[in-house]
């Protein structure tokens, strides 16, 4: 996975395309690599914040991985963690400061995510596993791919939790329109509590590994 990609590879060679497609399924950051769980729990009570978080991570991981890849030859291994964290934190804080000054309404919506992005271990994890060892272009693809793999799980969990927990999708009262409440249906308030996110992810893992049997663990 972190093998050096050869220079003469065309931009979208099979290998490069794999960088995007693998994290969507067989090498998924959440269900296989166990990265970025905390934020997956924090934002998935509703669909909208899940999508916002997914998009933010696509942006930050794509750009961050390129930056780290550009710096990779200069970073002394002993202090690499500090350097990686500093790069990511600076990037996120800068964006946050600009939003606060020029797009205050957007920044109010996003301020929750700033802390979650900096501490999101998917970002550090990919820097460490890929950005530090590869050229910028593959790193960029790897960043985007992993962020997308992370994002789709987030969106599925957010969708399920909002639908079953609040009876809405993106704030639109679906169940109410179907008239489900008048026949005695009630929202499952449990779904919007964080522990249910863990259980939903557990079920997604179950489904995924039933389909891709090679992923099944020994015990």
């Amino acid at each position: 996975m972190s093998a050096e990609v050869k220079e003469k590879d065309p931009l979208f060679s099979l290998k490069n395309r794999k960088l995007i497609s693998a994290p969507l399924n067989k090498d998924n950051p959440i269900t296989i690599q166990v990265l970025g769980i905390c934020s997956a729990l924090a934002v998935t009570a509703k669909l909208e914040p899940s999508v916002v978080m997914a998009l933010s991570v696509v942006f930050v991981l794509g750009v961050g991985n390129v930056l780290i890849s550009l710096l990779r030859k200069t970073i002394p291994p002993r202090i690499r963690i500090i350097v990686q964290l500093t790069v990511i934190a600076t990037l996120v804080i800068l964006v946050d400061q600009f939003l606060k000054a020029f797009a205050y309404d957007v920044s109010k919506q996003l301020s929750v995510f700033v802390g979650l992005i900096i501490t999101n271990c998917i970002i550090m994890g990919r820097f460490e596993a890929f950005g530090m060892a590869n050229k910028p272009w593959p790193s960029f693809l790897d960043g985007i791919g992993n962020a997308l793999g992370y994002g789709w799980i987030l969106i599925v969990v957010g969708f399920l939790r909002e639908l079953l927990g609040s009876g809405t999708v993106w704030g639109y009262p679906v169940f109410e329109k179907f008239g489900l409440y008048s026949v005695g249906y009630e929202n499952n308030g449990m779904m919007i509590l964080p522990p249910m996110a863990l259980i939903v992810v557990g079920v997604i893992i179950w489904v995924q590994r039933t389909k891709v049997r090679e992923l099944i663990e020994e015990n």
Binding site: V34, P194, P195, A197, L198, I199, I205, E217, E218, N219
Partner: peptide, 27 residues
Amino acid sequence: RYSNVPAPLRGLGITFIITGLMGIAFM
């Protein structure tokens, strides 16, 4: 490890679910 967990759920999957249950208990 000694229980008969459905194969695709073994390892990570069941850990997620147990953690969820423990979380509910801690509530």
